[in-house]
Design a protein around this nucleic acid. Structure first.
Lengths: 320, 320
DNA sequence: ACGATTTACGACAATCGTAACGATC
DNA sequence: GATCGTTACGATTGTCGTAAATCGT
């Protein structure tokens, strides 16, 4: 069994069973790929691919299982490369963040600035995406870490860390009847036209759902998917809006805000990671810049408990 | 990077940094091992072993990390072999159980019988050990599965499944004042000399601790580590005892039993497994014979959620 | 001087790419 | 006939084991 053979197998799977394409992607020849797979099958004594004469129909049952193990092995191999690279070129590398507009624009601003000063050699990429897609991006290893709001933990392959609570504010134009209030009720808000978040996203749904749950009929006049746009519309007098408090800066002289966190379900910022990938030092550092309560030690513990399997294994029960 | 190189690395670690021994264990030559490690170090661009001239002092920091990844990879490689072997020779193989005397003698009797009938080709080994050592044996891969009573979940690398409650009975010689009673109190038990479990084991500690917690002073006259011995002593009139109910068979005409499960802390049978090792079909079958509520499907789910990392990873972010 | 690791060298095996063949759509 | 997979063969590369050299205790 060779890592090469496993790479071939994985690529065949990725290329939906087309060996020629797999060979092309791996910059090698088809016959080589074909033969290595055959050798692997012979060594294991089990066919991995279902074939009819000269055509490949699919994986066999054990083939699928073995493919999964192969993927895990190759991931670990990649981890080894990462570890080596990290110690070789300290403070060099890439960091891919998957995040929503909101966090990219506001939450991450400070941490990103601190990070680029601390690690000038690391290329920081912000992969902006729909909030609902973020965990999937991390799971597909398109991003090293996902920063989003409120994920149901259905993605079991990820570790999610809960950050701080996201506060919400009602914003109204200056001079509006609700301006300057300390607190407001849902029913009061509903008296005025509302500029909402696009219902495509969870954030928007949560707001409108809350009105519905309390039997309050709210009138949404426009919806947008980004708080800057919403703020602009409110400032122009199109309506009032509920936005994350962190999207407000005091410089907005045309707007007035009222805290309404308690009127809506609690939202928390969540950071998601793949526990089976090696967390480079600067990655963990970035997260602790973002959420100081996550020290590197605490995160190592969380990741390690999610990613078992490196225990000593002193016993040698392997077949010879 | 070769699997061979990783095997060498792991064996060097196992042999506490003695390359010659490692080579001997792997049936190869020292120079070969030495050179492969050097090649790996050169390829990764990072020293894995700390050396002074001609002597090896220890692992480097990245070396230790890489060793862990290497162990995971080799475990998965072993899994691939297991999968292949399983489909090649269905119903052949070995099954190593780590268990305490109690479970070996009573709980497992039925399941073992059923198992040997269902899988006559599988060699079933019972590795009897002190209850407290059982999780460690599973973690070290000396056993495929551990069956024990009540483990604190400090072994995070293991998945533990909770089976049924262990009932306890007070046993007394026939004709004893407590004989025939439906229920007894702790204080009543403490009036008589007690034959106890060896305090070396958790089981014994739980019993005596309970007396102490309730401020009841009990008198232990003898202690043994095995319920058959204890039963014999009680039958001979040395004292009375608290034993797991399942250690009693109705044929014991010289003894009389009273259920006392509720007087002591609840104990449950726990089954422990390493989620990072491929669970052969007959292993899961054995467990469901032991605890019917664990179907193969349920266990697959439990294991898979504990063992992440085989997700598609369609993105190809690896360096070329 | 002995034990342990690295370096040197030669034989062997394995892998890879090109070319040719067979089968399928 | 075009695409895809397998078989055949030659060149290159890599691996392994023996022997020698080097270093440390």
């Amino acid at each position: 069994m060779t890592l090469q053979q496993l790479r071939f197998l994985r690529e065949i799977a990725r290329q939906s069973l087309n060996i020629s394409n797999a060979a092309a992607v791996l910059h090698t020849s088809q016959p080589g790929v074909s033969r290595q797979i055959q050798l692997l099958e012979r060594e294991l004594g089990v066919p991995l691919l279902q074939r009819r004469k000269n055509r490949i129909l699919g994986f066999t049952e054990p083939g699928r299982e073995i493919l999964q193990s192969a993927q895990r092995m190759l991931n670990e191999a990649e981890n080894i490369r990462l570890i080596a690279e990290e110690t070789r070129e300290q403070g060099k590398g890439q960091l891919m963040l998957a995040t929503s507009h909101l966090h990219a624009r506001y939450t991450l601003l400070g941490p990103v600035k601190a990070f680029t000063e601390r690690y000038p050699g690391v290329e920081l990429h912000l992969l902006q995406a729909d909030p609902d897609d973020i965990p999937a991006l991390v799971e597909a290893n398109e991003a090293d870490v996902g920063i989003s709001t409120e994920i149901r933990h259905k993605h079991r392959a990820l570790v999610t860390l809960s950050g701080g609570t996201i506060r919400r504010s009602l914003i109204v134009p200056r001079g509006h009847p609700l301006s300057g209030r300390k607190r407001v009720a849902l029913a009061e808000i509903a008296r005025y036209p509302i500029v909402g978040y696009s219902p495509r996203f969870r954030g928007g749904q949560i707001i409108s759902q809350t009105f519905r749950d309390h039997g309050v009929k709210a009138r949404f006049v426009v919806s947008a998917s980004d708080s800057d746009v919403i703020k602009a519309y409110v400032a122009e007098g199109l309506g009032i809006a509920i936005v994350p408090t962190l999207a407000l800066d005091s410089s907005d002289s045309r707007l007035s805000a009222v805290d309404v966190t308690d009127l809506f379900p609690k939202s928390t910022m969540t950071v998601s990671l793949r526990p089976d990938f090696y967390p480079r030092r600067y990655l963990l550092d970035f997260i602790s810049m973002l959420v100081p309560k996550f020290s590197r030690g605490a995160m190592h513990k969380a990741l390690h408990s999610a990613h078992a399997g490196s225990s000593p294994t002193n016993a040698n029960r392997e077949k010879k």
